[in-house]
Computed example of a mutant assay.
Amino acid sequence: MGGLAVLIASVVTWGVGAAWYGAMARPWQAASGVTAEEARAMPRVIYLLGFACILVVMGFAQWMFYLADVRGTGEGLTTGAMIGGFFVTPWIALNNLYTGRPVMLTLIDGAYAVLGIAAGGAVLGWLG
């Protein structure tokens, strides 16, 4: 499956993010300091660049899954959640600590890292 699996996993991960940040829009805006008007005025290219970042994450996750012999949806889900929880979320926390951003922002963004990469990991495990 290779590249197609990465693409499908990326679309799923992006979809989880759309749902997550749609549901968490107000708390995220309050924590990030971005108003609804500012969010609506963001250039649309940001979404394309965000998707490109997700492609990189899912491509690297697929390589890690290969090296760790991750097989099946359950192992992919669990390993993806661990990547989100133990690699990505601490890095988000580190950046937010040094910039004085609210803990709530770390919790919201970190939860998406766990949920999104878990969902993408499940796809990679299933198709891998």
Rank of each mutant, 00 (worst) to 15 (best):
A39Q: 10
Q29V: 03
Y98V: 14
I108M: 03
P43K: 13
E38G: 00
V114N: 11
R101E: 02
C53Y: 08
N95T: 14
G15T: 06
Y112D: 04
T79E: 06
S32H: 02
T73F: 15
G2S: 13
V57P: 02
N95A: 12
E37K: 10
L127E: 02
A19Y: 03
G74S: 12
P43Y: 10
M42I: 04
M104E: 12
G15P: 00
A119T: 03
Y47C: 04
N96E: 11
A5C: 01
F87K: 06
A111V: 08
A68K: 15
I92G: 05
G76L: 14
I117M: 13
V6R: 00
A41S: 09
M1T: 11
G76I: 04
G50V: 02
V56H: 09
V57E: 07
A31Q: 09
G100R: 10
V114M: 11
L97Q: 02
V6W: 00
G50S: 02
G2A: 10
A30W: 01
L4Q: 08
G74N: 12
R101P: 02
L4Y: 08
C53I: 12
S10Y: 12
P27C: 05
T106Y: 03
L107N: 02
Y98N: 15
R26D: 08
I108P: 00
G2M: 08
I83W: 14
A81P: 00
E75A: 13
R26K: 15
C53F: 09
V114E: 12
A5S: 01
Y47P: 06
A36M: 01
P102K: 11
P102H: 07
R40G: 05
G128F: 01
W20F: 10
G15W: 04
